[in-house]
C-alpha cells in the first residue's frame, strides 16, 4: 500500500525535488549573475528562482494532499514494461546508428524491426510499407526540396 501510495505521490515529490535541486545547485551554478548592475530590474536568476520556489511549495503540497487522500496507483505490468524496453532499445539503436549508416537505411531498418518485433506483423507488408515510405520521404526531401539527409559516414 505504501509502495503504491509513493507512486501516486511521485508527481508532487518530483516537483518538490526539482525545486530543491534548482535552488541549491542548478541556479547558482548554471545561471550566472551579470557582473554589472541593471538598476532595479530583476536579474537572470530572479524568474527561475520564483519558479523553483513554486515547484518546492506546490510539489510539497501535492505530495501531502495525495498522502492524506490515500490515493494509490499502480505501475505498468511487467510485459508492458518489456514492450516499452524493446521499442526504446530499437529507437535508441536507430539514433546511434544514424550518423554511421545514414537516415534512410536506418529508418527502413527501424520501421521493419518495430513492425515485426513489437507488433508481430508479417515481414512482407512491413518491408513494403517501410521501403515505400522511406523512398517517398527521400524523394520529397532530397530530390524535390533539396534538403540533404544524413547519408552516413559508412558510405562517404
Amino acid at each position: 500500500m505504501i509502495g503504491t501510495r509513493l507512486i501516486a505521490m511521485s508527481g508532487g515529490l518530483s516537483a518538490f525535488f526539482l525545486g530543491l535541486a534548482l535552488l541549491v545547485y542548478v541556479i547558482p551554478n548554471f545561471v550566472p549573475e551579470p557582473s554589472y548592475s541593471m538598476g532595479d530590474a530583476p536579474g537572470p536568476q530572479a524568474f527561475p528562482r520564483v519558479l523553483a520556489w513554486g515547484f518546492l511549495i506546490l510539489g510539497g503540497m501535492d505530495a501531502i494532499a495525495v498522502w492524506l487522500s490515500c490515493e494509490a496507483t499502480t505501475w505498468h505490468k511487467p510485459e508492458a514494461l518489456g514492450r516499452l524496453a524493446l521499442v526504446s532499445a530499437i529507437l535508441l539503436a536507430a539514433l546511434l546508428a544514424t550518423p554511421y549508416f545514414g537516415m534512410v537505411p536506418v529508418g527502413i531498418a527501424m520501421m521493419i524491426t518495430v513492425t515485426t518485433l513489437a507488433s508481430g506483423q508479417r515481414l512482407v507488408p512491413s518491408l513494403l510499407t517501410a521501403v515505400l515510405f522511406a523512398g517517398a520521404i527521400y524523394f520529397i526531401f532530397v530530390v524535390v526540396a533539396g534538403i540533404p539527409l544524413p547519408m552516413g559516414e559508412l558510405w562517404d
Partner: peptide
C-alpha cells in the same frame, strides 16, 4: 497543483538559453 507544476515546468524550459536582457547564458 499538477497543472500549475506542468505550466511552471514549461516556463522553466522556456528560460533555457541566452538571457536577452543581460546576455548571460541560463541552463
Amino acid at each position: 497543483l499538477r497543472g500549475i507544476c506542468g505550466g511552471m515546468l514549461g516556463l522553466l524550459l522556456g528560460t533555457v538559453g541566452l538571457d536577452l536582457v543581460n546576455a548571460t547564458p541560463r541552463f
